[in-house]
Write a protein that binds this DNA or RNA. Sequence first.
RNA 1: GGGCGCAUAGCUCAGCGGUAGAGCACUACGUUGACAUCGUAGUGGUCGUAGGUUCGAUCCCUGCUGCGCCCACCA
Length: 877
Amino acid sequence: MLAKNFDPKSFEKDFSFAAEAAHRNEDAESFMVLLPPPNVTGSLHVGHALCYTLQDIMVRYKRLKGYNVLFQPGLDHAGIVTQLLVEKQLYEKGAKKGSLEREELLREIWRWKENSGGTILEQMKVLGISCDFSRLRFTMDDGSKKAVSRLFIRLYNDGLAYRGERMVNWDPLIQSAISDLEVVEKEVSAKSWYLKYKLENADGFISIATTRPEMLFGDVAVAVNPRDTRYIDLIGKKVLVPIINRSVPIIADDYADPEKGTGAVKITPAHDFNDFEVGKRHGLSLVNIMNERGELEGEEIPEQFRNMDRFKAREAVVALLESEDLLEKVEAIKHKVPFGDRSGVMLEPRITRQWFIDAAKLSIPAVKAVKEGKIAFIPKHWENLFFEWMKNIEPWCISRQIWWGHRIPAWYGPDGQIFVAETAEEALQKAIVFYGKKDDVELVQDNDVLDTWYSSGMWPFIVLGWPDELDLNFYSKMIIVTGFDIIFFWIARMIMFGIYAVGDVPFGNVYIHGLVRDEKGQKMSKSKGNVIDPLQLCDIYGADAVRYTLASAASPGRDIKMSAQMVEIGRNFLTKLWNVVRFAQMNDCAYCTKDFNANTVKHPLAQWIVHKIKNMVQDVENSLENYRFDEATRSIYQCVWNSFCDWYMEFLKPILQSESGIDASNDVTASMKKEIRDVTGWAILQFVQVLYPIAPFMAKKLSGELGVADISWPDVSAITLDCGDSVEKIDRIQSVISAVRSTRKFLGIAPSEKLEAKIETTDDAFRQLCDEYREILLRMAGIFAVQKLDSQSIPVVIADAVVHIGFEGKIDAQAEKKRLHDEMKKLEKNRADTINRLNNEDFLRKASVDIVQEHKDRLDSFNDRINKINYITQNLM
RNA sequence: GGGCGCAUAGCUCAGCGGUAGAGCACUACGUUGACAUCGUAGUGGUCGUAGGUUCGAUCCCUGCUGCGCCCACCA
C-alpha cells in the first residue's frame, strides 16, 4: 500500500537506470542521442536540465519501443575555462603569476579533473538522465587525441588547415587568439576625442575623432572619402601624428564615412580590422604598438608610455594632448566594444601567426546537406540562421595560445618548414626526408593548442570509434538536442567535419529548444541573482516534477519562463497519479493480469476507458515523434485527470462498492465486476508506462506497486475493439450530468439538497440508458428519477444536452428566461451564419462534401436546440 | 543598417481557414472513503493595429506598432 502522501524523496534514490542505459538491442533499429558534452567544470543549471530532460524523454521512449538505443554522454575539456579555473586556484594557493611551467600546469589540471571535474554527471543522475555512463568519453581522452590529430593531418594535407599571419581578436587576459564567435559586443559609455592632426608644411590641422587616442602611435595614414568636398584638396598631402610628429599621408578611401566623426579617420592597420583592409589597399605599413598583455610596446612608443597598460596609456596620452593643445573637444558617446566571452575583458585586434581552417570550403557540402533535407532543424526557421552564418563564414582561427587542450600536431624545422604528423617521431622522419639528412634535424613542436570547439566538432564520430572503426549503426542516424546559441559553435562544425572526415552527415535531426528564463522573462544570470537551481527544485518537488514541468513547457520555438509555481503544477499532477494508484489499491484493482485482453472487455465503461487510452497513447506517440513534448504531457494529463479521475473513477465507485454492480436492481455479475477491476488495473499501468519517459522514478515506483517488473510501451495498435456505442453512451450520461450540475447551480439548488431532479424523456433508449446508470446519476448529479415524459411538467434544456430535465424545486422563471434568451441569441447568430453559408453557391461549389455535411449537421443541431428553448420559454410563462 | 521570432482570458501558454481553448489566479459552494498537492460550477477574450485574399480569417498575404533575439556598424 502506498503512503498517504506523495513524497518523491522517499523513493527516487532507490532507482538507478545504469543497466537499461547500457543495454543494447542489437537486432533492432538504431536510435542515438548525442549529449552535448558539458564542460568538465560545469554544474547543472536549469538550461542543462531542460536540454537533458528532453533528450532523456526521447531516449526512454525509444527504449520502450524496443529500439537499439544509445544515449552517449561525454565531458568537454573546455580549454580556456578550465585552465583559468585551475590557474586561479593555484594562485590562491600562493603560486606566482607567470611562474607556472607548461608541464606542471597540465599536471595540475589533470589532477583537478580527476578529483573535482565532472560533478555535473552526478547531478544528471539526480535528474534521472539515463545516459550510458559506462561509455562516458572525454574530449581529451586517448581516442579523442588520436582522432584530433588524424583529422588535422588530413585537413593540412588537403590545404584546408593552414598557418597564416592575419588579424585576429586577441584576448589580453588569456593572452590568446580567440575565434570570432567568442566575441561578445557590449554597449559601454565612452568618449570620443577630437584630435588635431597638423598639416605638414602648412598651417592648420585636420580634426579627427577617435575613441582610442592611445592607439595614435600606430597611425600610418589619415583617410578621407574621395567624394567629400571638404577634404578633396588635402588628398595626397601629409599630416603629422600628434605627439610623435610622424608624417603620414592623407589618402582617399571609401571606407571614410563623411557622416561619421569629422569625415576624416586615422588609419591604424595593425590594430583595427577595417584599417587593416584599408592598409592593404593602399600598401601601408603595419606599426605594431601593443604586446600580448595589452600594453603599449615598441620602438615607436615614446619612452614615457612604454609598457603602459592600454587604459592608463589612454589617460596619459589625453593629458599630454590637452597640455599641448592638440585636443579639440571631447564628446561623451555610447558605443559597442568587443569583449571576450570567457575573460570578460576588452579584446584587441592583433596581427599574429595562427592556424586557420578554410571554413568556407567545408561549408559548401554542409549547406547542401541541409538544403537537401538530409539534416533538418526543428523548428525549421533555425535553418535560416544556419544558412546566414554559412554564407558569411570566415576562416576559423583554431589555434589558442594556452596550454590546456589538444596541442597542434605541427613541428617546425630550423628554417620554419612545417611538418604535420601524428607523433614527434613521424614528424622527424618527414623532416629527415625533406632535408635529406640523417637524424640531426632539430624540430620544435608548435606551442599552441586547438580551439575547444575543434574536438567538439568531431564529437559525433569520435564517440563512435573514428578513426579506427566507426560504428555505422549510429552514425548519421543520431539526433541532437541543443540551444540555438551553439548552432554556429557546434552544430555547423559537426556537420562540416562529419561530411569531410566520414563522408556523410553525422545526424539527421537537430532539435533546437528555447532558453529558460526567469518568471519575468529575463535571462538568468548570476549577477542578477535570478538563477533557478534545478537541483534545489528536485529536492523540493522531486526530479519527476521538474522533468514533467520542463517537458510541458517545451513548446517549439518559444522560451520558457520558469518558476517554482510551475513545478508545483507538475508535482500536483504526479500526486494525483499517486492517489489514483492508492485508490486502486484500496479497491483491489492495483494489479495487472498478464493475459488481459483489452479487445474482449464488455462493459460500456470499460470500453470507454479503453478507447480513451488508445487515443491518448497514439497522441503521445505522435507528439513525441514530432518533438512536441508539451503536447505529449498535455495528452497524458488530460487523460489521467479529466477522463480517468473525473469521470471513470466516479462511475467506477458505485460499481465496485455496491453488492452486485452498478445498481442493486441490475443483475451485474461478479464477472463483470472482475472485468472492471482488470480494466482499471490495466488502465493505470498504461498511464504509468506512457509516463515513464517523462517521470521515470514515479513510473518505476508505481509499476512496482502494480506488480509489473518491466515497463514497456503500450501497444495500442493491437486494440481493435469497436467502442463506438459505449463511447456514445458514456458521453451521453456525462453530458446529462454536466448539464444538470450546471443547471442546479444556476437555479440555486444546493448540492446538499439531493434527490430533487428527474429526467423526463420520450426517447425509450435514452430512458433505458439513464435507468441503467441510475446510481451514477444520483451520486453525481442528484437525479433521483427517470420517467416517461409527462407533458404537464416543466422541462429544462441545458447546454448541449438533448434531454429534458424537470426539477421539483422552485425555479426563478425570470432568471431562467434571461439565461435562455442569451443562449438563444448566440444560437440564432450561429444559425444565421450557417444558413447563409449553405445558401451561398460559391460555398457549395468550393467546400468539400464533408464540410457541407458538417454545416448541415450543425444547422440541425442549432434548430433542435432553438426549438427546445422556445418550447421551454413558453412553458415558463 | 540586414535578418529572425513573438503579440490569443488578469498571468503562463496551446490552437491556426469553418460555433474561441487549457492551467494558474479570481468568485460561489462543497470535505469523515484516492486526492485541500482536492471536488463542482461560474466570471473573464471585437485572438496587437490597418488593409488584402476568401463564400468565410485569430489562422494565409502585405504594411504598421510594440517586445525579444541574432548578425553587421567600433572615427
